[in-house]
Write a protein that binds this DNA or RNA. Structure first.
Lengths: 339, 339
DNA sequence: CATATTAACTAAACCGGTTTAGTCATCTGA
DNA sequence: TCAGATGACTAAACCGGTTTAGTTAATATG
């Protein structure tokens, strides 16, 4: 099965490349190529499994029918799942997906953005480190089609699809309060991410609304890469003293998993002594003992909407109609909060 | 920040495109471009953030510095993790990664393969549905660089990186036997995958070696997409009758998770009444109650080696030195088997 | 001093498509 | 009957790089 080119088809059928190209792009009719010729072209192309060289096509058309996806880490189940839905929707709309992980490094992210642009991706979906305001602004200014997901830049009017982080943790905290917990702590990560900030605000809001002053000492911010080793100490310190917690809100799934590990290691009974609730969930949170109550993010919608907005944007270049979506999360009540 | 092209640099510096191209490809010296000119070119390119159009480059060079990754499902933590390591290694070697999911559909897989070829990826890493022997053979014949991972075609001499499935389940089954379990069942999926077949053989071998005849009724093959609903009935049937099982081997992580869910729903005590062991593991198997003993696959090595072999292959086109790697798995002993 | 080398470039072809601006023969209408 | 329209194509430019086969002027060699 030898590779066959447009030229080969043209020569074999005594036609010009032009005619063949037009036919194969379904522009035969509008260019008045006779039906008979169109049939011949299609027949020959099919028989010889003609497949256009997408680089040549892309170069010529100035587009690649490919969208780029940049996430912090593709092996994080959260982003992997989003990738899955991004891919599905993209494929449905005729786009391929290239992905890269930034590993939470702004410099890497910056390079990835420009590397993808050179590769002529038609648009980008980015779960940003949120430390590249410059470059994102630049993308914005140049009207390049892109959509931020999961994390956005509060100061910038870009397209984005995020979840209602504040309301999410507010709801979670309320749930703990409803279960009779009074001294609720928060475990989050020190990342500078707006999402994390919002989650903390939601937690504080719920406490305030409940008339409980929020003591700063009940909030622990762990470092993004060292949380595993800091967790035990953080939890131990929250369990002692006059304001020992009886409930813990974790701002993300891996913190919750790590926290539960630490609680078990410390011999703390969950939910008996301490209730536990997680923002977002891992695959097996229902199997964990106790099953972890979690606030589920609408990953399918995030991926799907991001692609829809992006492809729309690609279609109407410069239409500049920003689309911002803030999606609700859904509380999955299990046993880790009692009840 | 306007886009700048090779031509622009050439004109600005009163040079030919040729010279500029040579310099920027680090071929200045071998083409005797003067040091002074090289400096000027680099300075100008840097100052104006020149980035070559990769489509043009790819078209001209006949390669894209991109490798394609085809997996059944990117949201499966197993493949997502492999993707992560593939990406990391690829990046280290100067390659980008495009991925696509076949959703276990051979027709989709076939299309993806050809679609990636048109997009001029330099090589492919495929976790195949194992139902595309034709196309894989074709790739092989045409000396196109590719590496199979996780699943290979036993009859074909291709490059591949897989794990020792037989020994894996053999080891797992032995472990159950060592814990005193006597009537061990296997839960697998009906998929036609060689890996699954091997896992079953390993289980049977361990039983034979232990002098236990293997009763076919202790093996349950569930359907790839319906296992969730079939699980409860399958397990119930294995728990009753004269040969009620006291140990269960699950051939993959999601079966184990689903199985544990079913066991809990049936009120069966694990590991008291039935011990449970899983091939491969999910993120939180250590947190599950009971923590699940699992045979861990070397995902990092799989991803890394696949890329190494592939890039080597890309380098020496036609060298045709097949590389086959069968990696060992590692048993992580937890509480789900007693002890 | 004539010739061979070499240093430092350049013009133009090429990669494989798409597209613009024709061409030529036939048909239509006044 | 002849200009103008139309049907069915094609030649050549173009996308933005890389590369081959020179070119020119200066330098080295015999």
């Amino acid at each position: 099965m030898k590779k066959i080119f447009l030229k080969d088809i043209a020569e074999a059928l005594n036609l010009s490349k032009t005619a063949v190209s037009m036919v194969l792009n379904n522009k035969g009719d509008e260019n008045k190529i006779s039906k008979a010729t169109q049939k011949r072209v299609w027949a020959y192309a099919r028989a010889h499994h003609y497949q256009p060289n997408q680089m040549a096509r892309g170069l010529s058309l100035g587009k690649s029918e490919t969208i780029g996806l940049i996430v912090p880490n593709i092996s994080d189940i959260f982003y992997a799942t989003i990738a899955h839905y991004v891919e599905r929707k993209a494929k449905a709309l005729g786009y391929n997906v290239v992905f890269s992980s930034s590993n939470e490094d702004p410099e890497t992210e910056k390079q990835l953005i420009y590397s993808m642009l050179n590769r002529q991706v038609d648009g980008l979906i980015i779960a940003s480190t949120q430390k590249n305001q410059e470059d994102i602004e630049e993308l914005n200014r140049s009207k390049y089609p892109f959509v931020l997901i999961d994390r956005h830049y509060p100061g910038l009017a870009t397209n984005y699809v995020i979840v209602d982080n504040l309301r999410g943790t507010e709801q979670m905290t309320r749930h703990l309060l409803k279960q009779g917990r009074q001294r609720i702590g928060l475990v989050s990560i020190e990342s500078g991410l707006e999402a994390m900030h919002q989650r903390q605000l939601g937690y504080e809001k719920a406490l305030r609304d409940a008339g409980l002053e929020d003591g700063a000492e009940t909030v622990k911010l762990l470092s993004p890469f060292g949380y595993e080793s800091e967790m035990k100490e953080a939890i131990r310190s929250m369990l002692h003293g006059p304001r020992a917690v009886d409930g813990l809100v974790f701002t993300t799934h891996y913190l919750a998993a790590s926290g539960l590990r630490a609680l078990k290691a410390l011999g703390v009974e969950v939910p008996g002594e301490v209730a536990l609730i997680s923002f977002d969930e891992l695959g097996a949170f229902d199997l964990v003992e106790p099953p972890i109550t979690a606030n589920q993010q609408p990953v399918e919608d995030i991926g799907r909407l991001a692609v829809e907005i992006l492809v729309h944007e690609i279609g109407c270049k410069g239409a500049g109609m920003d689309k911002q979506r803030v999606l609700p999360t859904q509380l999955l009540i299990r046993k880790s909060c009692g009840a």
